[in-house]
C-alpha cells in the first residue's frame, strides 16, 4: 500500500503540491487529474525520489521508497524516450536488468510482449526504424516488462492513436488484475473514467477532489437529464430548477439545479403515458473537471 501523507513541495515561493494525502492499494487504479501545472508530475517525481518533498512523507508498505523498492516500480515518463540507435532487444533487456530481472527471463518475456501487443518489427530492429505507434508499444514494454508491483504512468494516453489507446487501457487493466497498484495522470476524462477505481484531482497543487469514481459523481447529484418526450424546449425551460436545455440526438439534454426537479419533469412528461427515453445521471467526469477548473479554489 502506498501512503502519501501531507506532502508539500515548494520551489522557492511557489507551492507545486500542497498537503497532498493519498492512499493507493494493490489491485486498484488511481487516476490523477488536473490541468497542466497542477502538480501531477511533481507528485510522481517525489514518489520516484527524483526530488524530495519539502514536508510530509511517502511510504510504500510503511517504508520509505528506497533503491530496492524503486526496482519494483514501473515508470512511463510523460515525454517518451528510447535509445534511437540501439535495438529494441538490447534496450529492453537493459531496462529489465536495471529492475533486477534476469537477461534470459527478460528475453523470453519480451517475445511474449511483442506478440501480445502486436508490435510490427523485429527485436533486432533499431528503434529509429520503428513507426511511432510501434515505438510507443515498445516504450510501454520497457516500463512494465519486469512485472512491477507498482506502476506510475505519466500521461500514458497522450499521442496514442485509438488502437494503441485501447491496448494501453487493456494493459493497465491487466496489470491491475494481476495485483499491481497503478497511478496514472491524464487529461482525457473519458479514459480516466473507464479505468480508474479512485480519483484525485489537483488544482494548483491543492487536492480539490478525491475518492472512488462513482462516489465522486454521485456527490454532485443526478443533475443531468436526457429525455425524449412530448415536452418542448420552452416547456422544459419554464419549469423551476431547470438551468439549461439543449437539443441532443432525438431528445433534449436538461441540466438541473437540484436532482429532485427530475421527478417534476418525469410526471409532466409521462402525463399521457409512455415516453421512449428518460435518463437522469450524475455529471460526467468531464463535466466535473470543467466545473472544478472553473471554480475558485
Amino acid at each position: 500500500m502506498l501512503e502519501i501523507k501531507a506532502v508539500t513541495k515548494k520551489f522557492g515561493n511557489d507551492i507545486a503540491v500542497d498537503h497532498l494525502n493519498m492512499v493507493l492499494e494493490p489491485g486498484r487504479v488511481m487516476g490523477l487529474i488536473g490541468q497542466n501545472g497542477a502538480g501531477k508530475t511533481t507528485t510522481f517525481r517525489m514518489i520516484l525520489d527524483f526530488i524530495q518533498p519539502t514536508s510530509g512523507s511517502i511510504l510504500w508498505n510503511n517504508q520509505p521508497i528506497d533503491l530496492k523498492a524503486k526496482q519494483r516500480i514501473g515508470f512511463l515518463p510523460e515525454e517518451r524516450g528510447l535509445y534511437q540507435k540501439i535495438t529494441v532487444e538490447e534496450q529492453i533487456l537493459y531496462f529489465a536488468e536495471l529492475h533486477g530481472m534476469r537477461r534470459s527471463d527478460a528475453r523470453q518475456a519480451l517475445m511474449e510482449w511483442m506478440k501480445r501487443l502486436d508490435v510490427v518489427g523485429k527485436v533486432t530492429d533499431k528503434v529509429q526504424k520503428l513507426s511511432k505507434g510501434n515505438a510507443q508499444k515498445v516504450q510501454l514494454i520497457a516500463s512494465v516488462i519486469f512485472q512491477p508491483e507498482f506502476v506510475i504512468l505519466d500521461e500514458p494516453f497522450s499521442g496514442l492513436d485509438p488502437v494503441n489507446m485501447s491496448i494501453m487501457m487493456s494493459e493497465i487493466q491487466r496489470l491491475r488484475d494481476q495485483g499491481a497498484m497503478i497511478i496514472f495522470s491524464s487529461h482525457d476524462m473519458n479514459n480516466v473514467s473507464h479505468i480508474s477505481d479512485d480519483l484525485t484531482m489537483l488544482k494548483k497543487g491543492k487536492t480539490v477532489l478525491q475518492g472512488g469514481l462513482k462516489e465522486i459523481r454521485e456527490r454532485y447529484g443526478r443533475t443531468k437529464l436526457y429525455i425524449e418526450s412530448p415536452l418542448t424546449m420552452s416547456q422544459l425551460r419554464s419549469i423551476p430548477g431547470v438551468t439549461q436545455v439543449t437539443a441532443q440526438e432525438n431528445g433534449l439534454l436538461v441540466e438541473l439545479a437540484d436532482e429532485n426537479v427530475g421527478k417534476v419533469i418525469f410526471e409532466k412528461a409521462t402525463a399521457n403515458g409512455y415516453i421512449p427515453a428518460f435518463s437522469q445521471q450524475p455529471p460526467t467526469l468531464d463535466d466535473i473537471f470543467r466545473m472544478e477548473v472553473a471554480a475558485d479554489v
Partner: peptide, 11 residues
C-alpha cells in the same frame, strides 16, 4: 530524450 528518467526510476 528523457531516457534518464526511465534509468533513474530503477537506479
Amino acid at each position: 530524450s528523457r531516457i534518464m528518467e526511465i534509468l533513474l526510476a530503477a537506479t
